[in-house]
Amino acid sequence: MDYIRFLGDSFDYTKEALWGRWVRWLLLLISVVIFPFIYGYGVRVMNGAKPAPELEGWVGLFIDGIKLIIITVVYAIPIWIFAFLPFAAYFIPTSATVTPATGPEPLFDPGMGIVVALGFIALFLVVAIVVGILATFAMVRFSRTGRMREAFRIRALLAHIGKIGWLNCFIALVVLTVAVAIVEFILVLVPIIGAIILLLLMPAFIIFTYRYIALLYESAPAPA
């Protein structure tokens, strides 16, 4: 998989979308604050529009943004659940009482609680990766079809991801995350002005990310 091509294409797409188009840039900055609009614009980017779409049809943008937020929240639920389990695995066993005469005593050795918690942490990482990849493809599938139910056709999503390869998808998303994080980190190191530039570049980061995952989605034909 040509990750460098994904990065290059996404950069060119973002540059064409914003450079010299200051009104669009300003409107996207406002949309970041009223965030359903920026999510709705992301739907249009992930839909494969090229060049980048204009900011129009604001009601549609808002509705699509709300739908995309709902999709991401639903996919985040299992991650939240598994994030809680390590704490429950440690604190529930070690806080239980067994005899009123001696006061509170753990039902299990605290060391065992730690081992169980570490096991749940490992499980959480696996679940987070799997659900994260599924959610990414679900967002694009919704954007391409315009139907929310398509975002939850798990069999179709699994088949699509399988064509590309789970490892390829994971590496592609890591490359994206690292690339964006490096730029953001460099900007944060610049006193005062770096934070301002980072804020101004938020639309660029968002467009870049959505275009990148759209390219990843397109790297294999999506099931009907």
Rank of each mutant, 00 (worst) to 15 (best):
S95G: 07
W25E: 05
I114P: 00
A76Y: 12
L198N: 11
L187K: 01
A83C: 03
K15Y: 15
P100M: 06
V45W: 06
M46P: 01
G8E: 03
V98N: 06
I196D: 03
A195V: 12
G48E: 12
A179R: 04
G42T: 01
G132W: 09
V190H: 08
L61C: 04
A89F: 13
T177N: 15
Y3S: 05
K50I: 02
M112S: 10
G8S: 03
P36N: 07
F91N: 15
Y90R: 14
L199I: 12
P53G: 05
E150Y: 15
A52R: 07
I193E: 11
V175K: 00
V175G: 01
L107A: 12
K50G: 10
F87M: 08
L107H: 13
F185P: 01
A135I: 07
V178I: 15
W80V: 10
T94Y: 11
I171W: 02
F137W: 03
Y41D: 00
K67R: 13
A179D: 02
A138P: 11
I38S: 14
I114Q: 13
R155G: 08
R44A: 12
I196S: 01
W22I: 05
T72W: 03
P203T: 08
F87T: 05
R149G: 09
T97A: 13
A52V: 04
W166N: 09
P53Q: 01
S219C: 07
L18G: 13
G119W: 08
L123W: 09
E218G: 13
A83V: 07
R147I: 09
P93F: 01
K15S: 15
G132T: 11
F11G: 05
F84H: 01
A181R: 10
L200W: 06
L61P: 06
G103N: 14
W22L: 06
E150K: 09
I4A: 15
P51R: 11
W58T: 13
A156S: 10
L157H: 02
S10C: 12
Y210S: 00
V183W: 02
R44P: 03
T72M: 11
Y75I: 10
V183Y: 01
I79G: 11
V32L: 14
S143A: 15
L215N: 01
L29S: 09
T209F: 00
F35I: 10
A101P: 03
P106M: 12
A128H: 05
D109F: 07
V45K: 08
P86Q: 05
A214I: 00
A89C: 14
L125P: 07
A181P: 06
A76M: 07
I66Q: 09
G113S: 11
L187N: 02
M1K: 05
L134Q: 02
Y210T: 06
A83R: 02
D109H: 14
A179W: 10
W25D: 07
T136A: 14
I30C: 10
F208G: 11
L7E: 01
G113L: 13
S143R: 05
G20L: 03
A49G: 06
M112F: 13
I213M: 06
E54K: 05
P86R: 04
V32A: 15
R211C: 00
H160Y: 07
R44S: 04
R149P: 00
T177V: 15
S10P: 02
L29H: 15
L198D: 04
A204L: 04
V115K: 12
P191F: 09
F37M: 06
V180A: 11
G132S: 10
A156G: 12
I81S: 04
I154D: 03
P104I: 12
G48K: 08
L216K: 03
K50P: 01
T177C: 13
L158Y: 08
